[in-house]
Amino acid sequence: MNNTAGSYALVGAKAPSDSTIAKKLREAGAIILGKTNPSEWGSFRIPWDSSNGWSAYGGQTYGAFYPHQDPSGSSSGSAVAASERMDTIGPITKTVKDSAYVLQSIVGTDVYDNYTSTIPDNVDKDFVGACKLTALKGARLGVPRNVISLMSDNTTDSMIAAFNNTLDILRSAGASVIDTDFPAAQDFLNDTLLALQIMSADFVVNIESYLKQLTHNPHNISTLLELRAWTRQSPLESYPAKSTGVWDFALENWDNTTPEFWQAYQKGLYYDVEGGLLGTIKRHGLDAVVLPSKFSWYFAAVAGAPVVSIPMGAMGDEQPVLVDPDGLVGSAPGIPFGFSFLGEKWGDAKIVGLAYAMEQRTRVRGEVKPVVRPWTELGDVVGRK
């Protein structure tokens, strides 16, 4: 299949082999039918105030729950376009147990990814076995109240109400819910350039490494500088209406081999370790931290910590809110929101179990109805016996 990152620059390019993840899925019996349309280059070309889910090659992806709904970055496919220190691969499935089966198939070391060599030998990898209704009994769950206060606005009222109601369900299942704070949350949210600096430094190096691996490179692009030049001159890439602002920043910044990068990365670790998620888990002896999903990913990404999100409800009477110049709707009645469990490093199986136990008690997914429904079933594509 084409691996384009949504760009015409890679249409027709050939990678030397399947990724380790795709290889493991095939070996487990999975059938890969197609690919999503990501935000171009994993949301890493156009500045953050532009459209989620847009790519030159694939067009605009929309969410299914409101006309012109913002699909968010991960949900439009960018979750599969990882850069080195801020992202990882993970499944998006209908149920927690479906995710557990996928994780069971792909977990382990990867000779092409040195980070996986640090997985402890004794880490719990039985994700399917973790899916027990009793998983919440005795669990200690922290709620960083200052994060919720700092990130709430007039579009999150129904989300916060549903979150607080869900905490009662956790308590009734035998969990202890402890109010906590992330000490550095305010500084982290104010430090708006830090994540961009870290990802930019990785991207400059990582994209060059990826392009060198291609067995067929249709435009002989080998660096980010060359990729930017090709994108700007191509009539297919919608430049300058869709800018290259993130790449401009990356090329003016340092790469991930410099002392400046290491200082920025250490600062990020402080925000998510001593000042954030991992430090809070350790100080309070927690099994996990819980947050509305909209607020959760910031605080796990730099720390390299796992997150599981499950459906919690849908927006109520909030007025539709446009989130970008192209008219994508970020908040509106009926748009679903989630509840997230954030764990310590290598604690994936534990939070999968916690999420499963909650999912079985709430069963929210079937209550939220999309306005767009598929008109093609799998049987129409692959045939029926």
Score class of each variant (00 low, 15 high):
38 P>G: 02
363 R>N: 14
308 V>E: 07
50 S>F: 13
138 G>F: 03
380 D>H: 15
360 Q>G: 03
223 T>L: 03
252 E>K: 15
107 V>A: 14
121 D>A: 15
124 D>E: 08
29 G>A: 08
116 T>A: 05
21 I>S: 00
307 V>T: 09
146 N>R: 04
5 A>W: 06
87 D>Q: 01
369 K>C: 05
154 N>H: 14
264 A>T: 00
381 V>E: 10
160 I>K: 12
310 I>N: 04
265 Y>E: 02
90 G>S: 04
67 P>Q: 02
117 S>G: 03
258 T>L: 02
274 E>M: 07
158 S>D: 09
307 V>Y: 00
40 E>N: 06
166 T>C: 12
4 T>P: 12
278 L>N: 11
305 A>V: 03
191 D>K: 11
6 G>V: 14
60 Q>V: 01
325 P>T: 08
309 S>H: 01
87 D>W: 03
351 I>W: 00
335 I>E: 06
80 V>C: 01
192 T>A: 13
168 D>Q: 12
135 A>S: 15
197 Q>C: 11
126 D>R: 07
186 Q>F: 11
275 G>V: 01
378 L>G: 05
200 S>K: 04
334 G>R: 09
327 G>L: 04
277 L>K: 10
359 E>P: 07
4 T>D: 12
277 L>P: 08
42 G>A: 15
42 G>C: 09
333 P>H: 01
313 G>D: 08
190 N>D: 13
187 D>L: 13
337 F>I: 05
283 R>Q: 14
385 K>H: 10
377 E>L: 13
209 S>E: 10
114 N>D: 10
348 D>A: 12
341 F>L: 09
25 L>C: 04
353 G>E: 04
14 K>M: 14
127 F>Q: 05
381 V>F: 03
367 E>W: 06
126 D>V: 02
35 K>Y: 00
341 F>M: 11
350 K>T: 15
288 A>E: 01
64 A>F: 00
109 T>I: 06
125 K>Y: 00
44 F>H: 11
339 F>M: 12
294 K>E: 05
277 L>S: 11
279 G>I: 05
37 N>Q: 03
230 W>A: 10
181 D>C: 13
164 N>Q: 08
227 L>M: 12
203 F>W: 10
2 N>A: 14
370 P>Q: 04
74 S>Y: 00
229 A>M: 13
168 D>L: 13
376 T>R: 14
23 K>E: 15
138 G>K: 05
338 G>W: 14
212 K>H: 13
212 K>L: 13
328 L>E: 03
